[in-house]
Design a protein around this nucleic acid. Structure first.
Length: 169
DNA sequence: TTGAAGATGATT
DNA sequence: ATCATCTTCAAG
């Protein structure tokens, strides 16, 4: 019995998954075999073609194509020329959604998360439901969490700028 | 082909 | 408040 989260978990709406994923344990097996186990503490939702803060709002491109696929796949991208962002695609085929992982364990900040976990370009498209080097393990849902507007998306305008799609515990 | 901007983080 | 650093994408 594995308690790895499966396609059923990731195949749902990002807004349903966001509060549930808090406290779930992200497992990363480093090249030398070391295992890092860290609970997810903060995520942001990027959801749908209309969401102007989402990369998917300008249609499918080479970069964002995995966002349009099935849930459970990793979407990595480089921002500001130096920080890799870890995203987990959610929902069904066709509906572009993803959760940006902004914090794990004591580490806060999406760029810090990927540096801590040694994640970069080669994790683009990785399947969390079958990978041997990264996955999520089930845990009870956390009791308390807060929500608020997303960070760094002031270009997106209303109502997207104000959507309370940031979740943390 | 080119240039402008960006789902950040560290430092002043 | 500023800057480091470079890929992506849309415009030309």
């Amino acid at each position: 019995m594995s308690d790895r989260l499966d396609r059923t978990f990731f195949g749902r709406d990002a807004l349903i998954i966001a509060p549930e994923i808090l406290g779930k344990v992200l497992v990363r097996v480093l090249p030398d075999g070391t295992r890092l186990l860290l609970p997810v503490t903060e995520v942001e939702v990027y959801r749908g073609l209309d969401d102007r803060a989402s990369h998917a709002s300008r249609g499918m491109t080479e970069r964002n194509r995995v966002m349009f696929g099935q849930g459970g796949i990793i979407y990595m991208y480089l921002i500001y020329g130096m920080h890799w962002m870890l995203n987990i695609v959610t929902g069904d085929e066709g509906g572009p959604e993803a959760l940006l992982i902004r914090g794990v364990g004591e580490t806060s900040g999406p760029g810090r998360v990927t540096r801590l976990l040694a994640l970069g370009k080669d994790f683009y498209g990785e399947d969390l439901t079958s990978s041997t080097r990264i996955w999520l393990e089930n845990r009870p849902a956390v009791e308390n969490f807060t929500t608020g507007p997303r960070v760094g998306i002031n270009y997106s305008g209303e109502p997207w700028i104000s959507m309370p799609w940031r979740f943390r515990c």
